[in-house]
Computed example of a mutant assay.
Amino acid sequence: MDIYEKIYSLSNTYEKRLKERVDARVLEMDNDDYSHHILYQVLGVSPKEGHDIDVYQNKGRFLYKYAGSFLEEAAFMCMKERFPDASKTRIDNTLGSRPRKFEIDSLVESHAFEIKWRDATTDGDHITKEHTRIRVIHAAGYIPVRVMFYYPNRDQAKKIQIALESLYRSLGGQYYYGNNAWAFIKDYTGVDLLDIIERIAKEKTKNGV
């Protein structure tokens, strides 16, 4: 099985998981308390539209989660294709007590990769944790590398990413996002992940998925 077939198979797995999770949640919602919909009506939203919004809000949460997990795992598969010894690992937090360990999404020799489909967070605790994680990885003797395929749209989230990129650079690390992230994966692994994703999307769209 070549890398295209492996990633296509992975997409089918995530598609199945997403459908099962969404179907189960929608079924659960049949028994939910919808008394809050009166507030929607006060704001001019009809009962049907309010219900649809609730349903799609839940669907959206699962879609974002599974889309991101799929892309991050697909990128790791590309690394494994070129570097069979690439591995996910956890290292001790030597600069604090919480969390006890930090995860490295892909460790290739001295390079510790964080693979993100996107990061739009503005949560202070998450930001502090991320800065600590990078410093811990650097202190452990690894080169921190961030590969993020989609840059956030909001100004505040962009400012956080700019600060994060500066930290990576200051510690001798690397930071790739957007087109540069796709190009990096292609150059580093020899696998054109973006082309594979586009081919799978086209194939599934053609088949009415």
Rank of each mutant, 00 (worst) to 15 (best):
F76I: 05
D32T: 05
A74Y: 03
E81F: 02
S69Q: 07
R61V: 03
K80F: 02
V45L: 09
N58D: 10
K16E: 11
E28F: 04
L18H: 09
H37G: 14
I38C: 09
A24S: 13
N12M: 09
G68I: 03
D85T: 08
N31K: 14
Y34S: 11
R17Q: 10
I53E: 12
H51K: 15
E72M: 01
Q41N: 11
M79E: 08
K16A: 14
M77A: 12
N58I: 02
C78G: 06
E49D: 14
N58K: 07
R82P: 03
R61L: 02
Y14H: 12
Q41H: 09
K80M: 08
L63W: 09
V55S: 07
A24V: 04
D32A: 09
D33V: 01
E15M: 06
M29C: 01
L27E: 13
H37E: 11
D52F: 03
V26L: 14
T13G: 07
A67H: 02
V22H: 07
R25A: 08
R17G: 08
E81Q: 12
D23M: 01
V45W: 02
A74P: 00
D30K: 12
H37K: 09
S46Y: 00
G50H: 00
L71R: 09
R25T: 04
A75Q: 00
M77F: 01
D33F: 06
